[in-house]
């Protein structure tokens, strides 16, 4: 059974939350739900409107996008991975589907507590911006690479 204290430890290992004092992380954990998924159950589905971000407490998950030939797995997620924040930040539909590989337990962080925390801790907002910028750089690099290959 998952306990608040373990969840706080888990959250501290997420880079985004690394700079936040444990007391506030405990609040974040308390106001979130622990959800258990069965193998094959979908945590988030592409194009759905999202209202929560997730930290995997235990288990593995596949990130996939649908394609003509069926779903293509683009990444894998493991213990301590944080995902789903884009959809709640920008109110955009989910960009990919996340499916539990085996039994999986995740902390579901709702939009409201997440934003409250962002408001109270500017360092978290900065960290968030850094993270997003990093991803943008990587995506841009991937795009250039892809264009060069197809040229």
């Amino acid at each position: 059974m998952s306990l608040l204290s373990n969840e706080v430890e888990l959250l501290r290992r997420v880079p985004l939350f690394a700079g936040i004092e444990p007391g506030k992380l405990k609040l974040l954990a308390y106001t979130s739900d622990v959800v258990t998924y069965e193998p094959g159950q979908v945590l988030v589905r592409k194009d759905d409107i999202g209202d929560a971000a997730y930290v995997i407490i235990e288990g593995d998950a596949d990130v996939s996008v649908p394609a003509d030939t069926g779903d293509i797995t683009v990444a894998e997620l493991h213990d301590g991975d944080f995902f789903g924040e884009i959809a709640i930040l920008c109110d955009t539909p989910r960009t990919a589907t996340v499916t539990a590989k085996g039994e999986l337990t995740a902390l579901r962080i709702r939009k409201e507590p997440f934003f409250q925390l962002m408001k109270q801790f500017p360092e978290m907002a900065v960290e968030m911006t850094r993270l997003l910028a990093e991803r943008l750089t990587r995506t841009t690099a991937d795009l250039i690479e892809a264009q060069r290959q197809s040229a």
């Binding site: 059974m1 998952s2 306990l3 608040l4 204290s5 969840e7 954990a29 308390y30 622990v34």
Partner: peptide, 8 residues
Amino acid sequence: IEPRHRHG
């Protein structure tokens, strides 16, 4: 309720 409040 233990699973909900999780104070152990």
